[in-house]
């Protein structure tokens, strides 16, 4: 379980998060909702270590850790970005196997075997040697999910997973997230889409803008 305690985050004097507390139970889906500008994405960036918090602590499985300064590969938090941020110079397979080889020190064969399982699971079979520009939005997102999963994260985070997609693809994202839950993956989903949040989440956390 991931626990956030008294998290405070300021940007140049403006307080985005103040005394924020949250619990993310294992194997469940936690949706973070709130109006735009409330700090949902900032919260996600703090959890994934892209932003440093001003104060407060993160506790993962009973031990404190600092996501912003986390080189320990056991406490990995995967992120699926809103605009996916696939690496355009690498094929789908290389996008997925790069980190497992460089960071987890897997052999090429090992990394590719694991990648292939995930590729098949997320319905990307046959796309391995394509480059990101050759994929549709939904396919790019699934590659981003596979890439995040390939480093065996403890928690998988999504930033607005429905916003860059056609409305009819929302269903697909829902079923992917729910099927990963079946595999016991702990997931945090930031969304402004209340309907979507209610469809998938075990727990909905509201982030409200702080009045100055």
């Amino acid at each position: 379980m991931l626990e956030l305690k008294n998290i405070k985050k300021q940007f140049g004097g403006r307080t985005i998060l103040d005394n924020f507390n949250m619990q993310v139970p294992d194997g469940q889906i936690t949706a973070i909702v709130g109006p735009s500008g409330a700090g949902k994405t900032t919260l996600l960036r703090c959890i994934s270590g892209l932003e440093k918090t001003n104060s407060g602590s993160f506790i993962l499985d009973g031990k404190t850790f600092d996501p912003a300064n986390n080189r320990d590969n056991d406490n990995v938090i995967g992120v699926v970005f809103q605009d996916f941020q696939l690496f355009p110079n690498l094929t789908v397979l290389d996008n997925i196997t790069l980190a497992p080889q460089l960071v987890l020190k897997q052999s090429k064969a090992e990394a590719e075997k694991r990648a292939q399982e995930l590729i098949d699971q997320l319905n990307l079979t046959g796309k391995e040697s394509l480059y990101p520009y050759q994929l549709s939005g939904g396919q790019k997102q699934r590659v981003a999910i596979v890439r995040a999963l390939a480093i065996n994260p403890k928690i998988l985070c999504y930033d607005e997973p429905t916003s860059a997609l056609d409305p009819d693809l929302r269903q697909t994202v829902e079923s992917i997230i729910l099927s990963l839950k079946q595999d016991n993956m702990t997931q945090i989903v930031v969304t402004h889409d209340m309907q979507f949040a209610e469809n998938i989440a075990d727990q909905i956390v509201r982030v409200e803008p702080i009045k100055a």
């Binding site: 994934s48 990995v76 992120v79 790069l98 980190a99 960071v103 890439r147 995040a148």
Partner: peptide, 8 residues
């Protein structure tokens, strides 16, 4: 950022 969360 994408590379960073992948721990590169």
């Amino acid at each position: 950022e994408s590379a960073r969360v992948l721990r590169l």
